[in-house]
Computed example of a mutant assay.
Amino acid sequence: MDDKDSWDSLSEFTLAEILEMENMYKEIGEETLNKEFCQKLATNFSCSSNRMGKSAVKWQQVQIWFQEKLLKTQNKHAPSSLALKLFVDLSDANSSNPGILQRRKGTVEDLKELSFEARSSKDFAWYDVESFLNYRVLSTGELEVRVRFTGFDKREDEWVNVDNAVRERSVPLEPSECHMVKIGDLVLCYQDREHHQVYCDARVADIQRNSHDERGCTCIFVVCYDHDYSEENVSLERLCRRPMQ
């Protein structure tokens, strides 16, 4: 086991620490990679009352987090170019695949055909895209596409903003992949309520790691939904990860 693996096994960042690092990265960007900066931040985290009972944070952990954040930012594709390509490639595509609530039962071929998801403005939930019907450029220069959601008819078609409501399809997690989920991760979580069952964005606020048995992963994940800030304890089978995580 290398040093990085041993650090990860001893200590995970808390959600508050991750949010603080996110804000610092937005403010000063690559300057967060500075060794002295990382040492000071690691000391502040380690001395915080929020880390009572947790292992101290090493400055190298902090630096690695910022390095990975920088790589993700640099590798992020331009969404407008992506949407135009989608319109050309997928607007005439037909799909007989089941809706998003059946995503976990899909085959490899289903995943190839259903490559994208879009967020509805009606309930803030993400749905698989069956086809891209049209596109338009607003006076602000923003690009919108009209989508048809898988499993719904034309009455549910919506215009959605490419920059914040169209993305590559989230990936269902297998029991053996639970180690990939970290505190602070953005996940797509199946929200089961009395009057609706949808997939919504959420942040992982805490994780109770348990031993796996014949039933698979028994870990408990505390998630905080982005749209209403409610928290819930969920199992791994209700989570999908983002492809770039």
Rank of each mutant, 00 (worst) to 15 (best):
D2L: 02
D5P: 08
S11C: 15
L15F: 14
A16C: 11
L19K: 15
M21N: 12
N23Q: 13
E27T: 13
I28E: 13
G29P: 08
E30Q: 13
T32N: 12
E36G: 06
K40S: 12
N44Y: 09
C47G: 13
S48C: 10
M52E: 10
Q61I: 05
K69Q: 15
K69N: 14
L71W: 07
A78M: 04
P79S: 02
L82E: 11
D89K: 02
S96K: 13
S96F: 04
R103A: 03
G106C: 09
T107M: 14
V108C: 13
F116H: 12
D123E: 14
Y127S: 02
R136I: 01
E142N: 14
L143T: 00
R146W: 03
R148E: 01
R155I: 03
R155K: 08
E156H: 10
E156P: 05
V160A: 00
N161Q: 12
V162S: 03
N164C: 11
V166T: 10
R167S: 03
R167T: 02
R169V: 12
R169F: 05
L173P: 00
E177C: 10
M180H: 09
L186H: 11
C189L: 06
D192P: 04
D192T: 00
E194G: 01
H196N: 09
D201S: 05
R203S: 04
R203C: 04
A205I: 06
A205R: 06
Q208E: 09
R209S: 09
D213W: 06
E214N: 08
R215M: 12
T218A: 14
V223H: 07
Y229T: 15
S230P: 04
E232Q: 12
V234G: 01
L239A: 05
R241L: 04
R242M: 05
R242E: 02
